[in-house]
Design a protein around this nucleic acid. Structure first.
Lengths: 188, 188
DNA sequence: TCGTTGATTCAACGAGCGTAGAGCTGAAGG
DNA sequence: CCTTCAGCTCTACGCTCGTTGAATCAACGA
């Protein structure tokens, strides 16, 4: 059997990665409160104390695990924006970065996750608002954002049958008019 | 000072009510996990053991506290339905029954709250689906429901500034076209 | 080769939790 | 007035959690 001893640095990197993966998965599945350091350690096949040594606290582990990548997208016109949002939804359905799921799972019950979610949503609202014209663009952008939030929560976290069973393109097709309705100021 | 000793039955009723009110408030504010029996007891000015005596377990206290009133509404046509949903939103903004908030707060992290939320949403989807025509009525009803869910979560639980600042009628006005877009099958 | 250092584990602490059972107290009822 | 009993409190058990400091072990540098 080849028992090549890994170099120290690489070993450390891999272990830390295993811990972070395990943490992300558990946080996404059951949220911050129900995820225990001990369970993370077990899943990563590591001693609980090691998790503390590497990350200092459960809070910090959560912070590191849910680091959400801030969606790099350029300026779009209103129609392109809607397509972009719906595409995001499609991605989400397939395999939304687990870090985001972890944050969303905990955002209603964990103060820091809530703050983090508010921040991420505010960024998204800003981006959307830039792409749509009209007076109350920010408010309409917020509504578009929480609509996407509702769909994602219902689909990914609550796992509603009706949404689970529908193919992704169908969801996008049905949702498009609802989002478009918010890209321009409504007729009085 | 009038120190009229209350009759035993009434005293009991009032105490139980105080406990349930305190529980509802705490569950709505911080969710199931972070709400402790001890904190509920403190808020109700009662001994923790009494809470157990009355409700048997924290789980059962939660069940009793979040009993959600199942919205009595009759058959409506599509337009009436949209107005009804938006009116619900308006009510929610003012003072949504705290039991519902408590359930929603915990639905992502507490298994039983999740089941309860799924059930409530399924009922709502059924009711909405009955009022709209067309082939994939159920799916469209589900989307309308999660849209309302998203708005409520963003507004009531995450307390997004953009939604908090807007008057309720404005929200309803902007949201109406998005919901209407789902009451009929879309043009191919 | 050998001491050093960093990765990893062991064992335990202190706190907070849900919960249980015995005990107290004053209204109810004869 | 005295007994009874329901409403309520006191005290404590057992468990799990996050966290810590010492101990172990293997890779590294000289």
């Amino acid at each position: 059997m080849s028992e090549r001893p890994l170099p120290r640095a690489e070993r450390r990197r891999k272990t830390e990665g295993r811990i972070l993966d395990a943490a992300r998965e558990l946080f996404a599945e059951v949220g911050f409160e129900r995820t225990t350091i001990r369970a993370v350690a077990r899943a990563a096949e590591v001693d609980p104390a090691l998790v503390m040594q590497y990350f200092g606290s459960k809070q910090e582990l959560f912070r590191r695990a849910v680091r959400v990548t801030p969606a790099p997208d350029a300026g779009l016109d209103a129609d392109g924006l809607v397509d972009h949002l719906l595409a995001t939804l499609t991605v989400k359905i397939g395999e939304l970065p687990q870090g985001s799921l972890a944050m969303m799972r905990s955002m209603l019950t964990h103060p820091e996750a809530a703050a983090s979610a508010r921040e991420a949503l505010a960024r998204q609202i800003d981006r959307v608002a830039e792409s749509i014209p009209g007076e109350d663009a920010r408010l309409r952008a917020a509504l578009m954002t929480v609509i996407m939030l509702g769909v994602t929560v219902g689909h990914q976290l609550l796992e509603l049958d009706e949404l689970r069973e529908a193919p992704q393109e169908e969801l996008a097709r049905l949702l498009r008019p609802s989002l478009r309705a918010l890209t321009a100021p409504p007729a009085p």
